[in-house]
């Protein structure tokens, strides 16, 4: 069982959803980001998504855009992401990296995979890489035993959901709404439907992200998905320091453990 499979299996055995938290590497500084991710793990997230700050983040709303800009102005270099992943692993946490594709392309796809695996990372989430263009990544991820998380969206056809699911390993990422990252009052009603459509074609765990910010929303999402992914809300809290991040993680961890959240269909057992 690969590292990620164990993470999802552990949550399933407790009849609850998994909690995945996102923060950009290097935000506000390299050291600072490692402390914030540590606080997130202490607060109870099951898996951290380490973001790569990028100059042109078209999938991100203002909160994450601003954080990425701060990280870059404060000197973030791409290789720093491996230092951050190492720090997560050293703390007993689990990390995947979320990155736009050009930095990986520039670094060299195989070299990036090699260095991520060496740092103890489990895999990549690729918001602007679709399976159709991912040949090099399919090869490199297999060679270095890394998971591949592609995204599906409410606008995805059933054929495209199937394609993304077939190309993915570890877990599949369902974007709850049509739009960019950012905390929202409501998670789209389309999210449950999208997860349902994905369940028809895959047994992979399915995480839902975009817009989740509260324990109530986390509980709601965990009632139909395997994992709840929270990004912008953590980035907002990061401005207030490690305690705020840990408190939010603990609050959300409570959400995925709420009674209604326990109704999640155990995808691995279908």
């Amino acid at each position: 069982m690969s590292g990620l499979d164990a993470v999802f299996a552990a949550a399933r055995s407790e009849h609850r959803g998994s909690l995945i938290g996102y923060l950009p590497a290097g935000y506000p500084t390299l050291e600072g980001s490692m402390e914030l991710l540590g606080a997130m793990i202490d607060g109870g997230v099951d898996l951290v998504e380490v973001g790569v700050p990028y100059s042109d983040p078209v999938m991100d709303g203002p909160t994450i855009q601003a954080a990425a800009g701060t990280a870059l102005r404060n000197g973030f270099r791409l290789r720093d992401v491996f230092t951050v992943v190492e720090s997560v692993a050293a703390r007993g946490g689990h990390a995947v990296v979320m990155t736009y594709w050009n930095p990986v392309h520039r670094y060299g796809v195989d070299a990036f995979a090699r260095d991520l695996a060496a740092a103890g990372g489990h895999g990549l989430i690729t918001p602007d890489l679709i399976p159709d263009e991912a040949e090099e990544w399919l090869t490199a991820s297999a060679a270095h035993d890394l998971s591949r998380t592609f995204l599906i969206a409410p606008s995805s056809s059933q054929a495209r959901i199937e394609r993304a699911a077939r190309a993915s390993s570890g877990f599949l990422y369902a974007t709850a709404v049509m739009g960019v990252t950012g905390a929202r009052d409501q998670v789209g009603a389309g999210a449950a439907e999208l997860v349902g459509r994905a369940r028809e074609v895959t047994g992979l765990p399915i995480g839902v992200g975009l817009g989740v910010r509260s324990a109530e929303q986390a509980a709601e999402v965990a009632s139909f998905a395997d994992a709840v992914i929270v990004g912008s809300a953590f980035v907002s809290q990061a401005g207030s320091g490690t305690r705020a991040v840990r408190d939010l993680a603990a609050d959300l961890a409570g959400g995925v453990r709420a009674p209604s959240a326990g109704e999640a269909r155990p995808s691995g057992l279908r």
Binding site: V58, M59, W101, N102, P127, D128, L129, I130, D132, E133, F150, L151, I152, A153, P154, S155, S156, S157, R160, A164, T175, M178
Partner: peptide, 22 residues
């Protein structure tokens, strides 16, 4: 068919837009 001119071109965009591009 997938928009490649030699190695260039293609689609490096979020999945959410692929339906609209299709």
């Amino acid at each position: 068919d997938r928009g490649h001119f030699g190695p260039y071109g293609g689609r490096f965009l979020p999945e959410a837009l692929i339906g609209a591009l299709d």
